[in-house]
């Protein structure tokens, strides 16, 4: 569903993304890891057509993003890191507005409410102005939007940053539901716990290059951390070998403060 063919982007001669080849099929949750500046957000921007590639091509389904960014975006639901809604509109109205812009059918108000509550928004909040929404609630509106417009692809940029553990859990469940619905999910994150809980595959990016793609099936958070450290810890400070599956590492004993 999401395809990148030798996708590259340079800013002032400096490569931000270097010949990315990637395929995220429908129903898969693909998490991109990497430090800041690795090219993760650039990848999302290229799929959204917010920026033009220096070379290569990005596709959303059959839509080639560069010549047809509008067609590509209509198949996408996008959750930016700082997701913002219109504060003067209620959750329902925000959802109806974005659906109207996407040319999708705008269902009746009751159906919109149902979509929002199904995405995890408390019932009492559905008809309240979004000015009082938390980040998690705002994200749920966009996830409801993804479902309402039957988005083929869901792009998320650092969705868990600033969320409390409960909200992260709810968000992960909602993302998983989107994958189960058949959406191709591409999530950029630093949250290794979230990656471990929802990813089907993990990609590691370093200096604009996708240096590793691995299956996330059965990986624990510690194993994801180990994978990450293998690429980014300084030489000589490499991560310890992964413990055998099913044995959690013992927590270090608390040290007394002197």
């Amino acid at each position: 569903m999401l395809t990148a063919n030798k996708l590259s982007k340079t800013y002032g001669g400096v490569p931000a993304l270097d010949a990315l080849d990637l395929e995220v099929p429908a129903g898969e949750v693909f998490c991109l890891l990497g430090p800041n500046g690795a090219g993760k957000t650039t990848t999302l921007s290229l799929f959204l057509g917010f920026t033009r590639p220096s070379s290569g091509a990005a596709y959303v389904g059959s839509a080639h993003v560069e010549p047809d960014p509008i067609g590509a975006r209509r198949r996408i639901a996008y959750v930016p890191e700082q997701v913002q809604l219109y504060p003067h509109l209620t959750g329902c109205e925000n959802l109806a507005y974005f659906l109207g812009l996407s040319q999708a059918r705008v269902p009746p108000s009751a159906e919109l409410s149902r979509l929002l509550t199904a995405a995890g928004l408390p019932e009492g909040a559905v008809r309240r102005p979004a000015s009082g929404y938390s980040k998690g609630m705002r994200q749920k509106v966009v996830l409801a939007l993804s479902q309402a417009k039957s988005a083929s692809a869901l792009l998320l940029d650092e969705p868990t940053s600033g969320l409390d553990p409960g909200a992260v859990r709810e968000l992960c469940a909602a993302i998983r539901r989107e994958g189960d619905r058949g959406a191709a999910v591409l999530m950029v994150t630093h949250d290794l716990g979230a990656v471990a809980s929802i990813a089907h595959r993990i990609g590691v990016m370093k200096a604009g290059r996708l240096v590793e793609i691995t299956s996330a099936a059965g990986l624990s958070e510690a194993e994801v951390l180990s994978l990450y450290r293998r690429h980014f810890d300084p030489p000589g400070d490499a991560a310890p070998p992964l413990p055998p599956r099913g044995t959690a590492p013992a927590a270090p004993a608390p040290q007394a403060l002197s």
Binding site: F50, I70, G71, R74, I76, P80, V83, Q84, Y86, L101
Partner: peptide, 14 residues
């Protein structure tokens, strides 16, 4: 400035 522009544009509107 608020960040709603990107979300609106990402809906596939000219």
């Amino acid at each position: 400035e608020a960040g709603t522009w990107a979300l609106a544009i990402s809906q596939g509107v000219d």
